[in-house]
Write a protein that binds this DNA or RNA. Structure first.
Lengths: 235, 235
DNA sequence: GGACAAATTAACCCGTTGGATAAATACTGT
DNA sequence: ACAGTATTTATCCAACGGGTTAATTTGTCC
């Protein structure tokens, strides 16, 4: 195939085109929000004509929703890969924190998209039957881990898994999502590798200390000089 | 005064006008972000002619920066009111969490503005000498509290005050800022009074348990039936 | 009671933007 | 090789949006 007789001005690639459009849209929406996103810029970035956006996906709103749904699909898919059942409760929690943290680091557009969607009071998410049907496996996973932890004596208390899930997400999300302003306020680069490692360690220490009651070995002191990067990088 | 001879079409009120403009701008920017904000809407909401915005404050960008600076001024002012020095370390931490939480609840535009500014990679904040000169008193306050806590034996570990500050902010900020999407995902209204109270209790329990090593009395169990609302509402 | 500046309004300008239309070009099956 | 359809390009446009210009009104100081 692809036996081009002459010089082809362009070649067909509907699937590829659609993907490039969605990728470009993801970048655009996550970089500028809904109101700041420019349809023309998406087209240009996708190496497409503006007409293609409407042909393959739809108008700006459809485009945004497709991006949002794609973002949720992706994280849900990765979440399913993680199985915490086979780990001892403390390790399971550490793994969960590590995964969440690294997912956020690797997918900064996801953070921005969530913020953007919340600015819109989740009005698009509410319309999306697709996203609403994608349940996160984490709540049940955490419920199980906590149950096991309490039974084994590793954990002292039965936390509400939803609260714990939100807290774990929060500790990483806020740090990363607001790293720009926080870096200015504190006068340090929170995204530097050292700072990120320190943050991960702090989060793990905080949550595990609360759950197990045992002080974490590596609970960071005031301005810890040098910290090994976390052990397991799962994602 | 105000002995209007005839029917006055309008009256002068430069200061009041400026305030109304800034208030309207705050609402607009926090509701729609930078790109989504509409200058005409700000004018209308402020009961002003569009020209007034440029006359009293400046263009859209100036308007946004003024709003951002005002937001930081306000929280810094309230932060200064809080003195943690006179409280026992655990109470000081609880008070800090309570204050932060309630400030966020009472000032939802602040959360939105921070998100918006981070979407812009803090480029406006960086230009603002005003904001950069407004140091938060919290880091030093926390440093002191932690020191005292370790000395008294209340706390087991010396946490980096910056990490702790970020964590405390994170636990509340993420929950509230993302309450719209999270409510959809979890199928519960996270802003309902009960849910908010439960969240505050969880945050306090989590942080204090990690610091003191003692399990909190009220560490919420899986779906706690009814929880007393938190004891001290400071702010 | 008028002059002069400050405050406010009304009207308009013009580049941008989301979206639409129609024509051109490439691929597919027969 | 040809018809028919799928895909892409080239324009167009009406509404919108930020910003400006000029005229109008109000307060204040002599």
């Amino acid at each position: 195939m692809a036996k081009r007789k002459r010089v082809l001005k362009w070649q067909r690639d509907p699937e590829g085109m659609r993907l490039r459009i969605l990728e470009a849209a993801k970048q655009e929406f996550s970089a500028h929000g809904i109101g700041g996103a420019r349809v023309d810029r998406i087209a240009q970035e996708a190496g497409a004509n503006k007409r293609m956006l409407y042909y393959h996906v739809g108008n700006k709103e459809d485009l945004y929703l497709a991006v949002l749904e794609g973002a949720y699909e992706k994280i849900r898919a990765e979440e399913r890969e993680l199985d915490l059942e086979h780990l001892a409760p403390p390790e399971a929690i550490e793994r969960l924190i590590d995964f969440t943290w690294n997912y956020f680091i690797k997918n900064p557009e996801f953070l921005a998209l969530l913020n953007t969607e919340n600015l819109a009071k989740a009005k698009n998410l509410k319309r999306s039957t697709k996203v609403k049907s994608m349940h996160s496996p984490f709540v049940e996973m955490i419920r199980d881990v906590v149950r096991r932890g309490v039974a084994s004596g590793d954990f002292r208390v039965a936390v509400d898994p939803v609260q714990l899930y939100i807290s774990i997400a929060a500790l990483g999300f806020f740090y990363l999502s607001n790293s720009a302003t926080l870096s200015v306020i504190f006068g340090r680069d929170l995204l530097a590798k050292e700072a990120r490692d320190e943050r991960l360690q702090h989060m793990v220490a905080l949550v595990l200390a609360a759950l197990t009651g045992k002080p974490m070995p590596s609970f960071a002191k005031d301005k810890a000089p040098k910290l090994r990067s976390a052990a397991h990088h799962t994602a």
